[in-house]
């Protein structure tokens, strides 16, 4: 456990000293600020625009960090051969992967926290209500980011950074469309198509289940049980990916 924490803290420190992160954070703050400007330009629905854009900015910047820092977590260590000196220490490869993942998780958490503080302050300025649903939506965004990070980490254990980025991005997009794919499959007359589509549906992550930005901005909360199940789903899927990443990493040569 100690080894995992050492790796995690070092990863967190690496992220903190990376300028890209600050640029992204700046970008998020800019987006939230921009929503204020945009809201002033339109005659009505100030609050809705600020609420919508803020949530979208948090989600978008979070996903960018998750993907682009996520794919570098392991592949950068391999490409720069820093992994050699670490693997020569009394640390298992599984501990290494877990540490890297936890480190980015910590980074994401701190980032989200900063963005949420800015966001809530903006809402306060606009006297926009902060419904419970908004916090629910943010929690589910965080779960989504954990899942996306796991995706990026998984791909980067066996392919190059570029390929990992493309695949993670692809799965992110598919993840938001699988519900529709399933709906289409249900209408298909071919049993084979139906079976294949259903298979794909359960194989790909369903990120739409973690998305309630739209209704949250309207103040429509979901039952706690739904939130719990959805979070459990996201975390289980992430655990699956991390386990697979460990299994692949365990067996590879450097």
């Amino acid at each position: 456990m100690r080894q995992v924490v050492v790796i995690a803290l070092n990863t967190f420190r690496e992220n903190l000293r990376d300028k890209i992160l600050y640029n992204l954070l700046f970008f998020a703050v800019l987006l939230i600020g921009f929503s204020v400007l945009l809201a002033d330009l339109t005659i009505m629905e100030h609050q809705k625009i600020v609420t919508d854009m803020g949530l979208a900015a948090i989600n978008l910047v979070g996903v960018i960090i998750a993907i682009f820092v996520g794919i570098g977590l392991v592949s950068k260590e391999i490409e720069r051969r820093t992994v050699y000196t670490i693997m020569a220490r009394p640390i298992s490869r599984t501990q290494f992967i877990l540490g890297k993942y936890l480190g980015l998780m910590l980074t994401l958490f701190v980032n989200i926290l900063i963005m949420v503080v800015v966001y809530l302050a903006t809402l306060q300025v606009y006297r926009a209500p902060v419904p419970w649903a908004l916090l629910q939506a943010i929690e589910l965004i965080f779960v989504e980011l954990l899942l996306v990070t796991a995706l990026a980490l998984f791909f980067s254990t066996f392919s190059t950074s570029t390929l990992s980025a493309i695949m993670t991005l692809g799965f992110y997009v598919i993840g938001h469309l699988t519900t529709d794919l399933k709906g289409i499959a249900q209408k298909s007359h071919s049993e084979a198509v139906k079976a294949v589509m259903t298979g794909i549906y359960y194989l790909c992550p369903n990120l739409e289940m973690l998305n309630m930005k739209g209704q949250a901005a309207m103040g429509a909360s979901v039952p706690l049980s739904y939130q719990a199940w959805a979070s459990a789903y996201g975390l289980l899927y992430a655990a699956l990916l991390i386990s697979a990443a460990c299994a692949v990493f365990q067996r590879r040569d450097f």
């Binding site: 519900t179 359960y202 369903n206 289940m209 309630m212 209704q215 429509a220 979901v222 039952p223 049980s225 739904y226 199940w229 959805a230 459990a232 789903y233 289980l236 899927y237 655990a239 699956l240 386990s243 697979a244 299994a247």
Partner: peptide, 25 residues
């Protein structure tokens, strides 16, 4: 088998989540 168990659990949870997702949503 670890991967299978996790995968099964994830798929099962997805089925529940799907079912629970309020129609309104």
């Amino acid at each position: 088998s670890l991967l299978l168990v996790l995968g099964g659990a994830a798929a099962g949870t997805l089925a529940v989540v799907e079912h629970q997702r309020p129609a309104m949503v």
